[in-house]
Amino acid sequence: MEVKVEGGGEFCDASYEKICMSTLRDISLESNIDSVYMNCNAAEHVFIISVKIGRVQSPITVSDMTIKGDERLTVTTETYVPKLLDLLWDRYGEKVEQISRLEIALKIDDDEMRKLMSQVVYDPRVDLNTRILDGIDRILPEGARVRHPIRSTGRITIIASENPIKEEWKEKAKAMLSKMTKGDL
């Protein structure tokens, strides 16, 4: 993940680069983002941040995170267990019992079990935008509450300020965006 911050002076640029890197790492977005560009204008209190979305993990199925046993599933990746249990309880109700931390008893026939193994437990693409916006919210100064998004493919770009967003800032952000798309920034 590349991070570039400009406009805040030497210290602030370096500080916000660190903030971007560690915030996105903390919310597990480091591998999903190709690059982050941020422009800080503290004098006018305008901040522009643009995130280029990179590779997204493919959906996690039941077979990706469990091993099928005899009327039971053994969990191999604990991360998505709450979502798996949600799915199982929704579908099968009382036939599901979590007998230990990594063992789930499931009284269903073999056919049903086979169909279950290909079910999607979690698709990272579904909440990716929400998570990126959460990350952007944590990075931008808290007082910059007035937000204006700029639409583009494969990117999330936000202008933020404590004041109403002026047209000139929108034009500036669009100009930056086209430079980024060409690879000049």
Partner: peptide, 14 residues
């Protein structure tokens, strides 16, 4: 003691 201001964020609006 630690205190968070109710409206301390921002520059002009702090």
């Amino acid at each position: 003691n630690m205190m968070g201001l109710a409206r301390g964020v921002g520059k002009r609006i702090a």
